[in-house]
């Protein structure tokens, strides 16, 4: 059992205060190795802020955030730099470099290491493109020529370039049509099991949530009110959960959950 619950991320007594408003108040959260953890909450509940603190883009006002055992407090050390190479982030709008081709976007993190030969980089980029189910003909395109779904795939390929163990997804399916949304979800699931990834995901989309999550962390009242399997979360009698999951929208998505786990 001890092996099962190795914590990749540990958040302890986290407070985040912007000039006048408290975003997080005494928040605790663990992310276990190999799971897909979804963060849900109303808009403005600080989901994205929490993820930004995990990857060190913002610092907590009080409390500790540890990723791979390294304290993320804004100090720059070799350990933090090494930890940084062990995670990837998929931004909500892709955040592709608009002046680089698809190929160069994915090759960028590999080239930044400055030691890999170009032919190896080429093969790896082609492999990543294949893994996110893009064609080699897409490699020469510019980000402005891509559809929304393709942008997300390229961004995912770039996030996976350095073979991360931990992947952050910010609204992975926002802005996609149902079909590409579904294929992106199945892509994430395939990659997660093939590469043994740990995934932390922010999402509003209930279908995605129930399809993927091993555990769901609900952010409300400035802290995590529950972090458990989807079924246990649904059983909690809390007004936010009732309205978020058990509305008409939720009922439809629930059928997916029941189909998946009979």
């Amino acid at each position: 059992m001890a092996m099962m619950t190795e914590n990749i991320i540990e958040i302890r007594n986290l407070w985040k205060i912007y000039s006048s408003s408290v975003i997080h108040q005494d928040l605790n959260l663990d992310v276990h190795r190999g799971e897909i953890l979804s963060l849900v909450g109303g808009s403005g509940s600080g989901k994205t802020t929490l993820v930004r603190q995990m990857i060190g883009l913002e610092q907590p006002t009080r409390g500790k955030v540890k990723v791979f055992g390294e304290l993320m407090d804004g100090s720059v050390s070799q350990h933090v730099e090494n930890a940084r190479n062990r995670w990837g982030m998929l931004f909500q709008h892709g955040a592709l470099f608009s002046s680089l081709t698809v190929f160069d976007n994915i090759a960028l993190p590999l080239r930044e290491l400055k030691t890999l030969p170009e032919n190896l980089i080429h093969d790896l980029v082609m492999l990543k493109l294949d893994m996110v189910r893009l064609l080699s003909a897409d490699a020469d395109k510019m980000p402005s020529d891509l559809s929304g779904g393709m942008v997300k795939r390229v961004a995912l390929a770039r996030a996976l370039a350095l073979e991360p163990e931990l992947l952050f997804l910010d609204e992975p399916t926002a802005g996609l049509d149902p079909e590409s949304c579904e294929s992106f979800v199945s892509l994430i699931r395939t990659l997660q099991s093939a590469l043994g990834l740990t995934i932390v995901m922010v999402t509003h989309d209930l279908d995605t949530l129930f399809e993927l999550s091993t555990r769901v962390a609900v952010l409300a009242e400035k802290h995590v009110i529950i972090c458990a399997s989807p079924k246990e979360v649904l059983a909690l009698p809390h007004p936010f959960i009732q309205s978020f999951f058990l509305g008409e929208r939720g009922q439809r998505a629930m059928t997916a959950l029941n189909l998946r786990k009979p």
């Binding site: 080429h122 082609m126 492999l127 294949d130 080699s136 003909a137 020469d140």
Partner: peptide, 16 residues
């Protein structure tokens, strides 16, 4: 072996 299977499946794809 899964890693090598994936590589074998991809084959040799060159950039046009």
């Amino acid at each position: 072996d899964a890693l090598f299977e994936r590589l074998a499946q991809l084959g040799d794809v060159g950039l046009l």
